[in-house]
Design a protein around this nucleic acid. Structure first.
Length: 98
DNA sequence: AAGTTGACCTCTC
DNA sequence: CGAGAGGCCAACT
């Protein structure tokens, strides 16, 4: 196995931190941008290594975050100006491109 | 030490 | 367009 280096995790954090307000990103994109082999690692990072970073700006490819957090995330995103339709964020406009 | 879990993504039926 | 299965990596029990 290839243990994830701090650099990878740090890159993920940097990417999330560099996401401007009113914009979101998907796990897959972050994982790819961080150079991770699998998007699951990004999800794992949020679960285990929760930081002060705005994880709520990170959503799934479906345009919706986790079920339990979805309500909170969408509310926060809506407050930042993200246009969410029926609980779904418009990735075509809100998706932050690196 | 092995098996299960976790906030996933993509392909196929 | 909706549902199901597979694959991926690491941490936790």
């Amino acid at each position: 196995m290839a243990p994830i280096t701090d650099e990878q995790v740090e890159t993920v954090r940097a990417l999330v931190a560099s996401i401007p307000a009113g914009r979101v990103s998907t796990y897959g994109d972050i994982a790819a941008a961080a150079g991770l082999s699998s998007p699951r690692i990004v999800a794992w990072i949020m679960r285990t290594d929760s930081s002060d970073l705005p994880w709520y700006r990170v959503i799934t490819a479906s345009g919706k975050p986790a079920p339990h957090l979805a309500t909170r995330q969408l509310e926060n995103l809506r407050a930042e100006g993200v246009l969410a339709k029926d609980g779904r964020v418009d990735l075509r406009v809100a998706r932050h491109q690196f």
